[in-house]
Design a protein around this nucleic acid. Structure first.
Lengths: 259, 259
DNA sequence: CGTCACATTGATGTCTGTCAAGAATCGTGG
DNA sequence: CCACGATTCTTGACAGACATCAATGTGACG
């Protein structure tokens, strides 16, 4: 619960957005500047509440956060995990009040960014526009994968798939090793992510442990053989969109980016 | 399967995007112009294939389309339905090759729009930028609701919730009445949407019919008492973001929209 | 008229949920 | 340092939802 997620040396936002576009020093400076006003949050503290008028855009700098919805007054469905470098509610500048909740999972540092600043970046500078939009689209892509997982994968592979994703996403921001990463998720949280009960999470984790696929200790996840776990759950990282595409440069020219 | 979805009198794209921003005549003309090159598709014909280099952006003008993923070679998970006025792959101008498939569900008319044209609109004109981005963000919001539904609602309420959503989304583009709308989904399709088997879909539909909540005839869905069905499945349309927000105008001023 | 996909129903099995009860862990305060 | 409560985590017994297997009926279409 209080496992501290390592702070990457560089700005996690810049680390993440490398995959969105090739940013120059000026772009990076603009991005880094967004993270100036920092705020610390307790675990479980809400960052965004559904229906609230958006005061600004929030960015996770340290720790984990998560999105969730409440269904039928009592059931909570976790909709996604937010790691350092992820925007919580970039969409609010367009959509307005959020339709879901966002809360700190671990102790967190977040940046509060005034709407207008992001707004100006998004709708004036086309390369940054592309990059910030890219960030929301990757979110959407991850949601599609989670939905596919929920619908078609049995619970054990669903957990395994989630673990593969978390290892990789944390590696992106320098918060994980080759075969291990922080995993500050309690079993009740995992249950809400996977749409199953805590009790089942416990049993499945035991089975995965017995199969030698994972090891959990001190709120860290160890994966002895990443390839084996990936094969087990049919993990294909394409949906994270981590490859720079050669054809994007051409598209950027068309859009008239040439600084 | 071959039920023809009514063509709204006005351009469905313009009808849909009304909720994204207040567009002037010039904006509407630009949007309408996007839909000039039309193409007809057979049911089940793929519009976008995962991994393919994106040739352009696709827009549904008539009929239904759907997104899906294939898991473990054989299991298909439907990730969303695309109705007239919905972009299939607006995200491709930023993300590149799609990470999922998109196919026609009924006979469809789609517009093929060259990447560059959308690209120019998105990254040059800030009001249209906001509007097109809005469209993708609503997609994302619907995905979150589907995921929540999948994780926390039992199958019967999941179907009911889907039906409420479909009735409303079709009303938006003038393709539905007060209490009925086209429903060109076969039971195997519904099964893939809900993550259950065809057999179960059949039984659940029977139960809903016996409960007097729905009637299905000639590929149309009739909902005798919409309020009752909404109550049954806890349907709250907030996630569709159909309200214009007063504070957006202010934000638009900041972004320098005032044409 | 035969084929094929869709739709319906029954019998049975399995995954996951519910109920119940301990055990382990952790933060807090005495 | 220990005690305490509060979460977690774990395990068992049982029930229910949904899957699988099988069979039959229906309708569209060549």
């Amino acid at each position: 619960m209080d496992a501290t997620v390592t702070l990457p040396r560089s700005n996690p936002l810049v680390l993440r957005l490398r995959y969105g576009a090739d940013l120059d020093a000026g772009d990076r400076a603009l991005l880094a500047d967004l993270a100036r006003s920092r705020r610390s949050l307790e675990p479980q503290q809400d960052i965004v509440r559904a229906g609230d008028r958006a005061a600004g855009v929030h960015l996770v700098l340290e720790g984990y956060a998560f999105r969730y919805k409440l269904i039928d007054d009592g059931h909570r469905q976790i909709l996604g995990l937010l790691l350092p470098g992820d925007f919580c509610d970039l969409q609010s500048i367009v959509l307005g009040p959020s339709d879901h909740y966002i809360a700190a999972l671990t102790a967190c540092t977040v940046a509060d960014i005034p709407q207008e600043r992001v707004d100006a970046l998004v709708f004036r500078d086309s390369r940054l526009a592309r990059t910030l939009w890219w960030a929301t689209l990757v979110d959407e892509s991850i949601l599609r994968e989670w939905l596919a997982s929920m619908g078609q994968r049995p619970a054990d592979k669903r957990i395994a798939h989630l673990f593969c994703e978390l290892l990789l996403r944390q590696q992106l921001v320098g918060a994980a090793g080759e075969r291990d990463c922080p995993l500050p998720l309690t079993q009740p949280m995992l249950a809400d992510i996977l749409g199953i009960t805590t009790i089942h999470v416990s049993r499945i984790l035991r089975d995965l442990r017995l199969a030698g696929l994972i090891r959990l200790k001190d709120r860290r996840l160890h994966i002895p053989d990443v390839a084996r776990l990936r094969a087990f759950c049919d993990f294909d990282p394409t949906y994270l969109h981590l490859v720079r595409r050669p054809d994007l440069e051409a598209a950027e020219d068309v859009a008239g980016v040439g600084s």
